[in-house]
Simulated scan of single mutants.
Amino acid sequence: MIRRTHPDQNGHKTLTSSHVQPVTKRIAVCRFVVCCCLLLIGESGLQTQAQQSFGGNPLAIGAEQFSTLGAPVDPFLQMPPINTDSLLAIDALPGNRIGGLKFAHTLFTDLSPETAGVTFTLEDSLWVWKVGIRSPGAYSLNVLFSEFKLPDGAAVFLYNSDRSTILGGFTNRNKPDGGEFSVAPVDGDELIIEYHEPLHAAFRGKIRITEINHDYLGLFRSGTRFNQLDLPCLPEITCDNSLDSLSHSTCLLIINGNTYCTGTLLNNTAEDGRPYVLTASHCLQNNASYGSRVITYLNYHSPRCNPLIRGSVAFSLSGSQTRALSNEVDFALLELNELPPADYRPYLAGWTTDTVNTSHPYVNLHHPWGETLKYSLENDSLVPANWT
């Protein structure tokens, strides 16, 4: 989670953790929800004290000179050049325009304390691994940890060169069982990963980076491709205060570090607050295993009804499990690994299998081209339909 402070929200129902059970709802129910994409808000919000980072800070600039290294070092690795024009041309080919919007190119690598960067000891108490990634021209960089098994007291930080964005500390509380761990993009074309481990930790942590994603589209730039179309039928969500609660049910998803889609926080019949997210199967490239590689952003809204002002990307969560997926109906039901904290102000959208139109206008919320949340209205009645 990016280091920013947000006010607590009061008056919401508190969530408690519950044992996870497989989803057994009939696909027809989910098909109706996906088909409509016009969701009613649930009666209660979510509230929890869960956090996605657990304190601490990266080392001060130049701290290496007071370590066993004795002097500052350059930990950066240079990535191969990226031809953005070629990537955009490939993305535009008809056969490649399937799935979510691709915004980043994946570079496969193998970075660990044994293979890259520098390691050193600081003040006879802390063992540090530090590695930098430089990929010229990237709007942002993000990485996939294929191994993330940390002892108690260890933490990982990610930040750019000017430290305008700092992620972490990420600890074994983020991934108690180890395994893959995805992180949000960090602005700029230079990324530093810093791992801290107590000298007397119970075991040496296992940490390995195998994928680096170079953002060539500028996913979080303000006023980008879609906003340049200037479509008055798709205003910013912040232009209509009556949609405030509804807006907190819609989220931007980054899948596999290189693709974006839209999802919706969804209520369930037990009303137990489990954080389900409904999206499309094609967003996961029809691959259920990609559920573990999802970063979920809530509240990615343009402030003050102005598409030229960048929205906040501070409200993020890492990881999920795919509970149900159908390529034929094109839906995927995910369950987030973490409960959204109270200051995210999340709401669970309601749904129904009733095909009788009860009210309108209908509201559609989404993130076109990965931009800030927008809405459109349909004043006519909906006509239920099936497809094969």
Rank of each mutant, 00 (worst) to 15 (best):
Y139G: 05
L141R: 00
N142Q: 15
N142C: 14
N142G: 04
L144S: 11
F145P: 03
S146W: 02
E147K: 13
K149I: 05
L150A: 14
D152Q: 14
D152L: 14
G153R: 08
A155R: 14
V156M: 13
F157T: 00
F157W: 08
N160L: 01
S161K: 13
D162E: 15
S164P: 04
T165I: 06
I166A: 00
G168W: 00
G168V: 02
G169M: 03
N172A: 03
R173M: 12
P176M: 05
D177S: 10
D177E: 13
D177N: 12
S182P: 15
A184Y: 05
A184Q: 15
P185Q: 09
P185R: 01
D187L: 09
G188I: 01
G188W: 01
G188N: 01
I193Q: 05
K206F: 09
I207M: 12
E211W: 09
I212D: 05
N213T: 09
H214N: 05
D215T: 07
R221F: 00
R221Y: 01
S222R: 02
G223Y: 12
T224K: 13
F226Q: 08
N227H: 13
L229S: 14
L229P: 02
L229N: 11
D230Q: 15
L231K: 12
L231S: 12
P232W: 10
P235E: 07
P235Q: 04
I237Y: 03
T238E: 02
T238L: 07
N241M: 10
N241W: 07
L243W: 07
L243F: 05
L246V: 12
S247H: 07
S249R: 13
S249T: 15
L253V: 09
I254D: 02
I255Y: 03
G257P: 07
G257Q: 03
N258T: 06
Y260F: 14
